[in-house]
């Protein structure tokens, strides 16, 4: 995408996410490693009024569940500048790099991936982005990385495993703050391909509820993904009297 003065970048409703208005609108994040793409995505450089340039990277909703959820109109992604995020199922780190852009230098992304093949790309990506802590471990065994992770504000999970509710619950117990939030992507046929997707989603939501998670919102990722849902909610919600 051509940058320069023609493209206008506006902040999105979600803090740390932007929209580039050009010939076609695109979801973008502010690149924290200016001059470099992570996975061949396009970059947009925008001239500021004071003569400096700010670079943004285009975030493809077909390649990222979080981007798809944002375009699908999710109410809150609970990831913003300064957030500490535990990211389960980081894969090669494409979406992780955008999350790192959003949380910025004051935030942290603990990125867990079990596959060594994608793990290699993840570690390499994290070399340049020091707010990403790469962890090559099994997300089923949070005790294995308990020395590497602090308490986090948000758990994001894209693990596509039949027991993912248990995986999220287990990690929540270790690392998710009271009153923290979870964002979980559910791929219906990874869990049970014999029943309708909405039935699978409802079952997963129920499992989460039993573990102290309080789902607040559920959206499907159409048209970007088939039979996928993203569920967002709070963990061990604190009853705060001051708020009332």
């Amino acid at each position: 995408m051509k940058g320069g003065a023609k493209v206008v970048v506006e902040p999105h409703r979600h803090e740390g996410v932007f929209i580039a208005r050009g010939k076609e609108d695109a979801l973008v994040t502010k690149n924290i490693t200016t001059g470099e793409s992570v996975y061949g995505e396009k970059r947009v450089s925008v001239d500021q009024e004071d003569g400096t340039k700010v670079e943004y990277r285009v975030w493809n909703p077909f390649r990222s569940k979080i981007a798809a959820a944002i375009l699908g109109g999710v109410d809150n992604i609970w990831i913003k500048p300064g957030s500490k995020v535990l990211y389960l199922g980081a894969a090669s780190g494409t979406t992780v790099s955008h999350v790192a852009d959003i949380v910025g230098p004051t935030g942290i992304v603990y990125a867990v991936e079990f596959s060594h093949r994608s793990g290699r790309d993840l570690v390499n990506m994290a070399k340049k982005r020091t707010n990403v802590i790469p962890i090559i471990e099994d997300a089923r065994r949070p005790e294995k990385y308990r020395m590497l992770v602090g308490m986090v504000d948000t758990v994001f999970a894209d693990v596509a495993q039949p027991d993912q509710a248990r995986i999220v619950a287990h990690n929540g117990k270790y690392f998710l703050k009271n009153g923290g939030h979870f964002v979980i992507s559910i791929k219906a046929n990874c869990i049970d391909s014999t029943v309708e997707a909405p039935v699978v989603f409802a079952r997963e939501v129920k499992k989460l509820q039993q573990e102290g998670f309080k789902p607040a919102e559920q959206i499907t990722l159409e048209p970007y993904e088939r039979d996928h849902a993203v569920v967002v909610g709070a963990y061990r919600a604190v009853k705060d009297k001051k708020e009332k």
Binding site: F114, S115, V123, K127, I133, P134, I135, I136, E137, L148
Partner: peptide, 23 residues
């Protein structure tokens, strides 16, 4: 955390000499 995670993860990726995914 960052330093140790890099060391730990890099050693894990390297350890897997036959480069086969542990599915």
């Amino acid at each position: 955390q960052l330093g140790l995670a890099h060391n730990y993860s890099r050693s894990k990726v390297k350890f897997n000499v036959n480069k086969v995914d542990n599915m």
